[in-house]
Design a protein around this nucleic acid. Structure first.
Lengths: 235, 235
DNA sequence: CGCGGCTTTGATGTTCATCAAGTAAAGTGG
DNA sequence: CCACTTTACTTGATGAACATCAAAGCCGCG
């Protein structure tokens, strides 16, 4: 097999990374190389913690593959889940530019790869590349906006409505399928929607009884989207 | 009275604006002048709406004086209040860099002055001044972070805890005083903490009965901060 | 195969929303 | 300035929604 020399030279995967255009589209080649040389790609197994709240912030991080949850542990020891996101949505965004330490913890719900770039380098790039800065602002504010929007959507609904909303979120936004594997426990759904896990489970059972979902453990099927959407809208 | 010529020349109030250092500290004089010439300072009386959700975003806005609430109207017609902020905290931050239209409405809780700068100009400044961009990112992310943090604090508390938290927020963060005038109605507190107004009122009455607050209409006095803090922590 | 954690369901009690009716306060028009 | 209207506030009673507790089944993992 013939391999083009130039292709071979670009051994750094950043050049061809599908996420490159998300943040780094406005960088010159040399700067992409710089990012690429200093970056670290870290793998996390399902369940592993990527960082704890209180850890020092050294890197700008984004998810390359997998699924993560951002959460805070309250003084009573229970988790408040802030958001569950896939690649192309930034993580650890809030606070990295104005604080020393993470306010929230981040852990992997599925095997995940996180790209870490020294925050100092990102700062440097912002300083000398306005287009990069402008694009970054746009991406960061979209991430924050998604978190705020999620919290508004959840807090206006009752128990059934919240669960319907979350199921639709998984189905439509995360998996693009009527059938999917829940990446979280019932308890974690409870922590996301601020309800007790017993009542989350009960609602699942009711949805199953009423033919709104079919579920077997973490496997979920939504036979009729409309029904679930009705519940999400009215609840 | 003798007036220095140079002082006289700087008739533009931006030069001496106390908010200048918040965002514009890294601009050169010429750029400050540019901002100053194109900016519009708008006054809003108490109760007036600064912008509606759905309005086109043309300006980067920040509060120069007064107090505002950021909120969303649900399809059922009730308000969800996202945050109540004073000057030095940005408003309309979320979405201005990645969307065409406002997602949330903004209205004045007290007579307010809002400084409006064309978003295009801000973009231009980001493009050619990295320090400005870096500072702006920091300020914007702090604003978003405050909103997210507020929502987490509220959602982990019960009715009494939420009200105690909000009263402490007004007392400590907004008014720096044990006695203050509530800038919002009971209904608005309900819309902020996602509870019914009847129960907000009931809780006020209970706090009054138990000597936790003294209140007369919108005038609130907190005789014993510790008591209220206990309720906020445990609830 | 046994242990621990997650799930499930029922029973019970607390918390909160809703409804209703009345009072105070604040704006509105003559 | 007063009568009128409207809006905010207040309280009680009732029921719905949700948390909590407890017991049992299931599943995965060592």
């Amino acid at each position: 097999m013939k391999i083009d020399i130039n292709t071979r030279k670009k051994k750094c995967s950043c050049m061809s990374c599908e996420l490159r255009n998300l943040v780094f589209s406005f960088l010159e080649e040399a700067d992409v190389q710089l990012v690429c040389e200093t970056r670290e790609e870290k793998s996390f197994a399902k369940g592993e913690i990527i960082h704890h709240e209180g850890d020092m912030i050294r890197d700008f991080k984004y998810l390359k593959s997998g699924l993560v949850k951002l959460y805070k542990t309250t003084s009573e020891g229970d988790e408040q889940i802030i958001t569950i996101t896939r690649p192309f949505e930034f993580v650890s965004n809030t606070s990295i530019f104005h604080e020393e330490k993470y306010r929230y913890s981040l852990s992997a719900l599925e095997d995940s790869i996180v790209c870490c770039i020294r925050i100092d380098l990102i700062r440097e790039l912002i300083l000398r590349n306005g287009k990069f800065a402008l694009n970054l602002i746009s991406v960061l504010s979209r991430t924050s906006e998604n978190i705020i929007s999620l919290s508004l959507e959840i807090r206006k609904r009752n128990l059934a409505g919240r669960i319907a909303y979350v199921l639709l979120y998984f189905s439509k936004e995360l998996y693009h399928s009527r059938i999917f594997e829940l990446p979280v426990s019932r308890k974690e759904i409870a922590d996301l929607i601020s309800m007790s896990s017993a009542n989350v489970i009960r609602t699942f059972s009711e949805f199953r009884r009423d033919g709104i979902i079919n579920s077997n453990g973490r496997t979920i099927e939504i036979p009729d989207m409309n029904k679930l959407e009705m519940i999400s809208m009215r609840g």
